[in-house]
Computed example of a mutant assay.
Amino acid sequence: MVTAPVHKESLAVAGLPHPGHTEFLQALAAEHLGVPVSEMPVRMMLSAPGLATVLVSIHVSLRQALEAVTTERVMDTIRITAAHYHRCGMPDVRIAVAGLNPHAGEGGLFGREEIEILQPVVDRARADGLNVSGPHAPDTVFMRARQGEFDVVVAMYHDQGLIPVKLLGLEHGVNTTLGLPMVRTSPDHGTAFDLAGTGRASAASLLAAVDAAIKMSRLSPS
């Protein structure tokens, strides 16, 4: 499934109880399989040529996003990421975990989330046999991934992961929902109502999303 952009404010005005496609499709898939939504955790992966990042939290306020950085959510994100790449033929995917605080906390000087939450999760994931490292300084980990050191970065919140991807090239960005029982992609941009009807809108990101969905469908049974 390849979805086009939606205007989230319009969804809310219309009364839809989901902030976007990702959460809506999660609810539909859970209902189809007869399981609670809590038993079908999904994550958003944003990718552009040279960089892929998976988000611990999606469409919530920054305050809520910080509260979502828990041992369980970060571990689930790593596992969902590893499972996706395994299905796509990369069982030893190199996963980098970004820190939450500046310089990954500087040994607790700028916050203790890296010490109390992230490092234990990384150690646990490595004990489970996953190729995970971190927590890395968030201001350099995306650059290191683009240089080839990592295959994907687990980002702690929406803008931490999306800003570097969109900076690399919004026209080639693809949003993939991990954790669904199907392949789902979409363009990595919004509705751009100001461009509607002007003949200036670009379909490049949509075409990239279609191409990504085709490739993943060929590689993955789900």
Score class of each variant (00 low, 15 high):
Ala4Phe: 13
Ala4Trp: 12
Val6Asn: 11
His7Tyr: 12
Glu9Leu: 10
Glu9Lys: 09
Glu9His: 10
Ala12Lys: 14
Leu16Tyr: 13
Pro17Trp: 05
Pro17Ala: 05
Pro19Gln: 09
Pro19Arg: 08
Pro19Asn: 09
Thr22Gly: 03
Thr22Met: 05
Glu23Asp: 10
Glu23Gln: 09
Leu25Gln: 01
Gln26Tyr: 02
Ala27Trp: 11
Leu28Ile: 14
Ala29Ile: 03
Ala30Cys: 09
Leu33His: 15
Gly34Leu: 07
Pro36Phe: 04
Val37Asp: 12
Ser38Asn: 08
Arg43Cys: 11
Arg43Phe: 08
Met44Gly: 00
Met44Val: 09
Leu46Trp: 10
Leu46Gly: 03
Ser47Met: 14
Ala48Asp: 02
Pro49Cys: 13
Ala52Leu: 06
Ala52Lys: 15
Val54Gln: 00
Leu55Ser: 05
Gln64Trp: 00
Gln64Gly: 08
Leu66His: 05
Glu67Pro: 02
Ala68Ile: 07
Val69Arg: 05
Thr71Ser: 15
Glu72Gln: 15
Glu72Trp: 01
Val74Gln: 04
Met75Ser: 14
Asp76Gly: 03
Thr77Ser: 10
Ile78Cys: 01
Arg79Asn: 04
Ile80Arg: 13
Ala83Asp: 09
Ala83Gly: 01
His84Asn: 10
His86Met: 10
Arg87Asn: 12
Gly89Trp: 04
Gly89His: 00
Pro91Trp: 01
Ile95Pro: 00
Ala96Trp: 01
Val97Cys: 04
Ala98Thr: 07
Gly99Lys: 00
Asn101Gly: 13
His103Asn: 13
Gly105Ala: 08
Gly107Glu: 13
Gly107Trp: 10
Gly108Trp: 10
Leu109Trp: 12
Leu109His: 14
Leu109Tyr: 13
Phe110Val: 02
Arg112Pro: 01
Arg112Phe: 02
Glu113Gln: 07
Leu118Ala: 08
Val121Leu: 04
Val122Glu: 03
Arg126Tyr: 10
Ala127Trp: 00
Asp128Thr: 00
Gly129His: 04
Ser133Asp: 05
Gly134Cys: 01
His136Phe: 12
Ala137His: 03
Thr140Gln: 08
Phe142Pro: 02
Phe142Val: 11
Met143Lys: 12
Met143Cys: 12
Met143Asp: 13
Ala145Asp: 08
Gly148Phe: 06
Gly148Thr: 11
Asp151Pro: 06
Val152Arg: 02
Val153Gln: 05
His158Met: 08
His158Leu: 09
Asp159Gln: 12
Asp159Gly: 11
Gln160Asp: 06
Gln160Pro: 00
Gln160Met: 11
Leu162Ile: 07
Pro164Ala: 08
Val165Cys: 09
Leu168Ala: 11
Leu168Ile: 06
Leu170Thr: 13
Gly173Leu: 02
Val174Leu: 03
Asn175Pro: 08
Asn175Tyr: 11
Thr177Ala: 10
Leu180Tyr: 10
Val183Gly: 06
Val183Thr: 14
Arg184Ser: 08
Thr185Gly: 11
Pro187Leu: 07
Asp188Asn: 09
His189Trp: 01
His189Arg: 06
His189Ala: 11
Gly190Ile: 13
Thr191Tyr: 04
Phe193Lys: 11
Asp194Cys: 07
Asp194Thr: 09
Leu195Trp: 03
Leu195Asp: 06
Ala196Ser: 12
Gly197Asn: 03
Gly197Phe: 02
Leu206Gly: 07
Leu207Tyr: 14
Ala208Pro: 02
Asp211Pro: 00
Asp211Val: 08
Ala212His: 11
Ile214Asn: 10
Lys215Gln: 15
Met216His: 13
Met216Gly: 06
Arg218Ile: 06
Pro221Ser: 07
Ser222Met: 13
Ser222Gly: 09
